[in-house]
Design a binder for these strands. Structure first.
Lengths: 248, 248
DNA sequence: ATAAAACTTGTACAAATATGCAAAAAATAT
DNA sequence: ATATTTTTTGCATATTTGTACAAGTTTTAT
């Protein structure tokens, strides 16, 4: 078997499986692993694939490693526009943190006259750019990673509020397990926000559907509206339809 | 499974959920936690994510102020370094808003263990980047221009605090007229901060010396320490020496 | 302030790799 | 056709890499 043929075979394998193992190729092509290594090395030099310890990997996968700037932003913008249609003048609205919520704020109509309440610093900062929004920050001790205020004083203050809507950026949502998250203190705040609002709207890109994490924020029944970038009739959303949740 | 594949998986998880736990990844990828730690460490070195105790978190969520052009920044950095020498472990410190205060925060020793209290959103955001600082945000209605919390609830809350130091970014200071400013609501907050701290330290670039504005924050006698970028013996600072203010 | 979880450091071992060399194969020249 | 050169391949060996485990240290925590 000619070298060129081996190379063609290897490239085909990479295109199909995104990776190849030197050991596999050695048995498939009936040459020594040394030869495979040399082949992969050459293809790497030509920029056709990425040689790694144990085999080689498609270049496209390397792309996704660097492409982490604003993950799924187009999806989040779709969600933001769906969500913004729910807001009316005079409303009092609770907002959590997260990049999806930031997109929602950017998507707000510039002449919307609503009052927004949040405990997230980035959310507050973005809200301040809106020309007419009234912004209330419920403060206390700030959590470093989540960049939000947490603790008993926050919970108490939120308890005094009667809001119309509560928009939650979601980390994990599952039709059975409900909304789950990782940080205990942040979850306590989200619970309080849900309790203080007439309606809770969950915003989640579809990749977060049917995933769960360690700690529960609320049961799925506590969510009135679920917004994803998908069409409401999408297969993935059936379990949530079944739970009588409005899907936008 | 190749190492790069694991890396790609981890990055995908980070992009979806903003954070990952080493323990979760260990079970999902069926490798030891050691290996996960090494992976996260490598990805951290590559600048793809932020390694933290127990796992890793997304970089994109960790956004700070995209520091635009700061007026008179070199002077402000000099001031910041002088001011940071006043801070000791265990102190409770009040901070106003303003770019000089932001520079002060950047100049803090990374292992300083102090508690900072502020009503300014940009100040809070910058403080969150400090590794050990405890940050407390006194929240309420936010003022758009000043990007800070104001109002009776803030004044009341500040009244309950007993702080060691209060650092004020100053707009106008004059040996006769004292510290003056423009926005009534923001001034009320500064007054309350001065009242709650044992010592008040005014930070001002020399261009703001001997200028006055419409509304008074406090008399010059309320300031214990004045910090400018000038040498303390500078001609311009004589009027303040005469008022028994410590000049750094 | 104590226990659990996570981290560091060092060790061990297997898998993968690099390198030099010689045999085999292919290309080229005579 | 045969000899000469060049390329390719496989093998032995020494080296590096990737992973897991263990012991001791640090950090975190509901």
């Amino acid at each position: 078997m000619l070298k060129k043929e081996r190379h063609a075979f290897i490239v085909r394998e990479i295109n199909i499986h995104n990776k190849v193992l030197s050991s596999d190729l050695s048995t498939q092509l009936i040459v020594s692993e040394d030869t495979i290594r040399r082949d992969l090395h050459e293809l790497h030099e030509e920029g056709i694939l990425n040689k790694v310890h144990g085999g080689a990997i498609s270049k496209s996968i390397q792309f996704s490693l660097q492409n982490n700037i604003v993950y799924s932003q187009p999806d989040k913008i779709i969600i933001a526009h769906k969500a913004s249609s729910l807001l009316k003048d005079g409303m009092i609205v609770l907002l959590s943190g997260g990049t999806t919520i930031i997109e929602l704020i950017k998507a707000l109509s510039p002449d919307l006259n609503a009052t927004f309440i949040t405990t997230s610093i980035p959310t507050a900062l973005e809200l301040l750019n809106h020309p007419t929004a009234e912004v209330i920050f419920v403060g206390n001790k700030l959590l470093k990673n989540a960049q939000m205020a947490v603790g008993a004083a926050v919970i108490e203050k939120l308890g005094e509020i009667k809001a119309d809507l509560c928009f939650l950026g979601i980390n994990s949502i599952d039709a059975v397990e409900g909304i789950t998250d990782l940080e205990w203190e942040a979850i306590e705040v989200k619970k309080a926000m849900i309790k203080s609002a007439k309606k809770t709207i969950a915003l989640a890109i579809s990749k977060k559907l049917n995933t769960t994490q360690r700690l529960m924020v609320c049961k799925i029944e506590s969510v009135e509206i679920l917004i994803t970038e998908l069409d409401p009739s999408d297969e993935l959303l059936q379990p949530y339809h079944a739970k009588k949740i409005t899907i936008l």
